[in-house]
Write a protein that binds this DNA or RNA. Structure first.
Lengths: 150, 150
DNA sequence: ATTTGGGGTTCCCTGAAGGAACTCATGCTG
DNA sequence: CAGCATGAGTTCCTTCAGGGAACCCCAAAT
């Protein structure tokens, strides 16, 4: 389908999609985050085609989101989150919150997060980096930034 | 390619991807958010195929993320965010922050957000809904929730 | 009566996803 | 040492979704 590349657009959403926007990539990241770090584990857990898994892992490594690390004298490898990748997981946590609120149904959320700092079950709350007050979609004006197109 | 449906997985990330995980959907949401609400506007701005745009808009309306609204006596329509959709935009704001930090390059971020509450340029910061302290990927333990699989 | 313009459909072509089989290097077992 | 097992991919074929351009329909406006 010669899928359109988004990376050249002057938009951080489009650029981010170029890194993890392909099908399966967010789920791969999720699995690596919770400790499923090896090829066959990922393949079995996700039910993804091995071909596509190979492609996605390569791409995520290339983008600096994952790191491919040998764990044996034999040619065996594990995938780990880099700092860049760990910060991406925050985005997944926000996705989880939305999915929990709008799609979970009566059974409730599939997973819970316990926050280390307070020890409580909690979800992630978007707040203003400047004043700390809630920062939702209609709490902001969108202005052109320095990297805006001409 | 008979793309795998993620919606049946017991995972809020997978379920959310079923709503906005298809190519273009997040960009459509972004455009609608900043006021590009009509078919031809969206098509021209994104450079998306009209066919795919039709499919995406239908799907987003079906999922309750967008609302299709007539704006004229003639059959003319605008797409608007529902509450469900507006909350999804928060996820886009987090994507933006990540893209700004890791992909923007020397030109800097393409857009800036001014927070209504404090009037300052700021970005969105993930915090614990319980204690208000920062809540990043490695600040939490992931536990099975009530909706977890057996 | 014809043009214009928004909002889509229809069509064909290419390329990405699914799926299963195959490969390759190493280590273990008998 | 032969044979099997294992992790980590590759190869190959088929099917379906995305790109792109042309086409269509309806309701003003000229």
């Amino acid at each position: 389908m010669q899928r359109t590349r988004f990376g050249d657009m002057t938009c951080s959403i489009a650029r981010t999609l170029d890194v993890i926007g392909e099908p399966w990539s967010p789920l791969i990241l999720r699995d690596v985050w919770v400790g499923m770090t090896r090829f066959d584990q990922l393949q079995a857990d996700l039910g993804i085609s091995r071909k596509v898994l190979t492609e996605r892992l390569h791409h995520l490594v290339e983008q600096g989101v994952l790191e491919r690390r040998p764990y044996d004298a034999r040619p065996r490898f594990e995938y780990h989150l880099t700092d860049k990748g760990t910060e991406l997981v925050e985005m997944l946590m926000v996705m989880v919150r939305w999915g929990d609120r709008w799609l979970a149904g009566p059974a409730g959320p599939p997973v819970l997060y316990r926050h280390h700092a307070c020890g409580e079950i909690a979800s992630v709350d978007p707040r203003c980096s400047h004043c700390g007050e809630p920062m939702h979609a209609d709490d902001v004006d969108v202005l052109p930034g320095p990297g805006a197109a001409a």
